[in-house]
């Protein structure tokens, strides 16, 4: 009996020792990885040590207080409206393109598994992995400066974001009604409209609203590369070292994003 207890106790101590060793080894390799990263990234250590003072100085003396007179001037308000317009139009057009793509990219519904399914998946995956600022810069190169390029970048963002979520939702539907509509001899489009879409309506509407919210977030900085909206003003203020004005714009952006998030939350709670 006593032997058994000793054995258990010894096994416990052994486990604890092994656990400690593993933890120690993990911590040690993390440190080694850290030093290697500092070397690869060429991070200046003296700057790391002085960084709190410098960032604090930047925030308290050069950014605060925000220049709200500039931030509520007519040109900024116009840029805010342009940003909202870009996000709405980009989401709208993007959603129209996403609807068929999401249908093709859902394995259980896709009309063609050999060609359309992989194509739709590829388009969604690539749009999703393409950072919107890079897409905007490329589109500015093709279509010139202005909100049109920014709107197209938001269309790409919508395809990647909403496409994935919509296709995932579509893969969870109940196939019973779909088969029932199909049994009436309806074509593929009618099966979609009467058998599939009614089941997906609530979740898809929610995704569309959520997507608009996310697009508004990314549209606030598209102006950085000349693709329209409030980002251009931010860039201007920073390049002339007018940080109080820049902070005013940042405040405006935060207000805009918080308002859109509250609105999207409200719409999703209220209706779907």
């Amino acid at each position: 009996m006593g032997d058994g207890i000793t054995a258990v106790r010894q096994a416990y101590l052994h486990d604890r020792r092994v656990g400690r060793f593993v933890k120690f080894a993990a911590l040690l390799s993390l440190f080694a990885f850290g030093f290697w990263s500092i070397d690869v990234l060429q991070i200046p250590i003296d700057r790391v040590l002085g960084m709190f003072g410098r960032v604090g100085n930047m925030v308290w003396q050069r950014l605060l207080p925000p220049d709200l007179v500039y931030a509520t001037s007519a040109s900024v308000i116009y840029a805010v409206l342009e940003t909202i317009e870009m996000s709405l139009l980009g989401s709208f057009i993007g959603t129209l393109i996403t609807l068929p793509l999401a249908w093709f990219a859902a394995w259980n519904l896709t009309p063609d598994r050999v060609f359309l399914y992989p194509m739709a998946r590829l388009i969604i995956v690539v749009s999703r992995s393409l950072p919107s600022l890079m897409a905007a810069m490329l589109l500015v190169a093709v279509f010139g400066f202005g909100p049109f390029a920014g709107m197209l970048a938001l269309v790409v963002g919508t395809i990647g974001f909403a496409g994935k979520l919509m296709a995932e939702q579509a893969e969870t539907i109940n196939m019973g009604p779909v088969d029932a509509v199909r049994a009436t001899g309806a074509g593929k489009l009618k099966v979609f409209i009467y058998g599939i879409f009614p089941q997906l309506k609530p979740s898809w509407y929610g995704i569309v609203i959520y997507n608009w919210d996310a697009r508004l977030r990314s549209s606030t900085i598209l102006g950085f590369v000349g693709a329209g909206g409030i980002g251009l003003h931010l860039r201007e203020r920073i390049s002339v070292l007018e940080y109080h004005g820049a902070m005013g714009i940042i405040v405006i952006i935060i207000v805009l994003v918080v308002a859109s998030e509250a609105m999207s939350h409200f719409l999703r709670k209220r209706y779907y």
């Binding site: 990234l41 991070i43 700057r47 790391v48 960084m51 410098r54 960032v55 930047m58 920073i238």
Partner: peptide, 8 residues
């Protein structure tokens, strides 16, 4: 603006 260019 506060710390200069680079990955930091």
């Amino acid at each position: 603006a506060a710390l200069g260019l680079g990955p930091l």
